[in-house]
Design a protein around this nucleic acid. Structure first.
Length: 283
DNA sequence: GGTACCTGGAA
DNA sequence: GTTCCAGGTAC
């Protein structure tokens, strides 16, 4: 395993890499140094115009790494996450489709029976385009009546629907749901994630994490990033994770339209990622 | 080529 | 903070 730590060598390795060899490998301390160098460069132009993931992709370009493949030892145990400061948006932790998987419950049930007409149906998309987008937490129901329930006895978390909690603004939608489903009440089949499966997915992806909190500015239609706060987070905690769900800090995000199910995400409120870990370092 | 993942917003 | 939404890749 070779260690590369100069710009020139990185470039050479990258060129060689294009014809066959592996990426450069850093020690964790060297990766932190590289991240600090990038921070010290100041504002950096987005290199992936038109892609909303530009902030993360641009950082990956600067590190000369492939997506989701950190060039450090035990890279399978590490994740690189980039987040925009001050935009209030959620950070995606990982994706996981709910059980029972065989039912493909999102595209086969939630979207057709509980979805609504996509706002761009008839323009960008076909007239029949449906949408089911819900960001759901365990503390309050959404205005369409969905929430997360944690069942400690059965060791699973599940999605609940209460038509009595649907906001009046969605009255027409509720009526259409009743017509489509045939009756109204709790979901006949509640999507769920078993604790074991969930902890396995979360733990294997989030065990350790480099988390970069970046500032963003825009000049014209061009974005610039300042990769400012560098965190090293170690030892993902299942206990803290389930508690964060219970407290409404971690949410479940359904994200499907007819032509594209973006997948079901576990997401966390801004800047809260460190609370999921036993050890937090900042650089 | 379909499904489940990845990276994330804007209002 | 909530609601609704985006372009991509791995297999």
């Amino acid at each position: 395993m070779e260690t590369i730590n100069t710009e020139r060598n990185l470039r050479q390795t990258h060129l060689i890499g294009m014809v066959q060899m592996s990426q450069p490998v850093y020690s964790k301390q060297e990766l932190i140094e590289r991240l600090k160098e990038i921070r010290d460069k100041g504002w950096i132009q987005n290199r992936r115009k038109g892609n909303t993931g530009g902030i993360g992709n641009t950082l990956e370009d600067l590190l000369e790494i492939k997506e989701n493949n950190l060039p450090i030892p035990n890279s399978a145990e590490w994740e690189l996450k980039t987040h925009r400061k001050n935009n209030g948006s959620l950070t995606t932790l990982f994706h996981s489709e709910p059980s029972p998987r065989s039912l493909k419950i999102v595209p086969s049930i939630l979207l057709p029976y509980y979805g609504w007409k996509h706002e761009k149906a008839g323009t960008k998309y076909p007239d029949s385009e449906m949408s089911f987008r819900q960001t759901i937490n365990a503390v309050t129901r959404t205005d369409r009546g969905f929430c997360i329930v944690i069942d400690y006895d059965e060791e699973k978390i599940l999605i609940s629907f209460d038509p009595g909690k649907v906001s009046p603004k969605h009255k027409e939608w509720l009526t259409s749901v009743e017509e489509r489903v045939g009756h109204i009440g709790e979901l006949d089949i509640q999507p769920y994630w078993g604790f074991d499966d969930l902890f396995h997915t979360a733990g294997s992806k989030l065990l350790n994490c480099f988390y970069i909190d970046a500032e963003v500015k825009k000049e014209g239609d061009q974005e610039y990033y300042l990769y400012k706060d560098i965190y090293m987070l170690r030892k993902f905690s299942k206990q803290k994770f389930i508690k964060a769900i219970q407290n409404g800090i971690v949410l479940i995000d359904f994200d499907a339209r007819t032509g594209h199910n973006h997948g079901t995400k576990f997401r966390i409120r801004e800047d809260k990622i460190p609370i999921l870990y036993e050890e937090v370092s900042m650089f």
